[in-house]
Write a protein that binds this DNA or RNA. Structure first.
Lengths: 174, 174
DNA sequence: CCGAGCATGTAAGGGGTTACATGATTGG
DNA sequence: CCAATCATGTAACCCCTTACATGCTCGG
């Protein structure tokens, strides 16, 4: 799974420009996948060269023109091929947990600060995902709702574990 | 946070060879950080050139010789610098959730298969982490235990959410 | 007037992966 | 005899990030 596969998926519903693709990636997709403009634009160019998408320039008033891309049948076939490839393992990378792992080389106050900060970030993400669910959760297919549910559950249980750990570490203040 | 920082952290306790570093990375570190030999050996060479570590060849009987690396004071200083750098955000990448996100373009049976497979993987990781905790959890600093607890909690709540989703999708069989 | 939003792109570099290459020993 | 474990390394490649470059419009 890479940027190309995700872009193919996004273009399945409707033609989009690079800028619009970046916006669609914001949330909830950004919870488990991300891409910058430095990836999106070169990928679109490559996909056009491969015949997976076609470009159409759209002239706008009061705004810069945009290049809107739509899927070709080759693009749709390529997306099918992705869906038939083996599912890759999830990968979770955490600087925070690496620091906890080496926690014996750091003082308690720094550890507590890191944990408090992680709680803040985790809570913020959970809230954001919950807001999304109440806003758009109604007319979403069940599989898409699952993405939101997993995001919410993961963040909430992580925050809870962090809170318990903080209590044990600082001795109930905070 | 990159491979160099993690290797510096591992060498803090005792000198290790590249092969031994790879083993230390297996679990529980591999839950939130991973590196292959193709990363480890070049990184060690680079670190030696920078003066962060020194190499010592250890002759072994019945086994190939190994190059054991130990931290220098520059290496220890470099690790301190890492600990004083801003904490990077966690990143979670999931091919599985991307497929769920685009679930409307796939049939129910395939979706159910993907979910069952994800449950299997998630359960397996939870079990593995729990085994680690009961085995080595006693004489671990609290911060290190937190890594295991987060790993266990995250996997368990993910598995639970997946099971509920599967029930809703297939209608309680399975 | 300045910053934010809209819009597209490039170039350099970082940080990894996979596969290849080699070779000894031990246990089934 | 074959596979696994121990052990080190290289080369090609992939995929992505950051920073830079450009430029227009609208609202405060």
């Amino acid at each position: 799974m890479n940027s190309q596969d995700v872009i193919l998926g996004l273009l399945h519903r409707a033609p989009l420009s690079g800028y619009e693709i970046k916006q669609k990636l914001e949330m909830p997709l950004s919870f488990f996948f991300d891409a910058s403009f430095g990836t999106i634009y070169p990928t679109l160019a490559k996909m056009e060269a491969l015949g997976y998408i076609v470009k159409e320039s759209v002239v706008q008033e009061g705004r810069p023109n945009k290049n809107v891309y739509s899927l070709t049948s080759e693009g749709r076939a390529q997306f099918e091929q992705y869906l038939h490839s083996p599912v890759e393992n999830d990968s979770y990378r955490s600087d925070f947990l690496v620091r906890m792992f080496f926690g014996e080389y750091t003082d308690q106050e720094t550890l507590a600060d890191w944990i408090r900060d992680e709680i803040r970030k985790t809570d913020a993400e959970a809230v954001q995902l919950e807001r999304m669910k109440t806003e758009w959760g109604k007319d979403m297919p069940a599989s898409k709702t699952l993405c939101l549910d997993i995001g919410i559950e993961l963040n909430e249980s992580k925050a809870q574990t962090l809170r318990e750990a903080l209590k044990r570490l600082t001795g109930a203040d905070d």
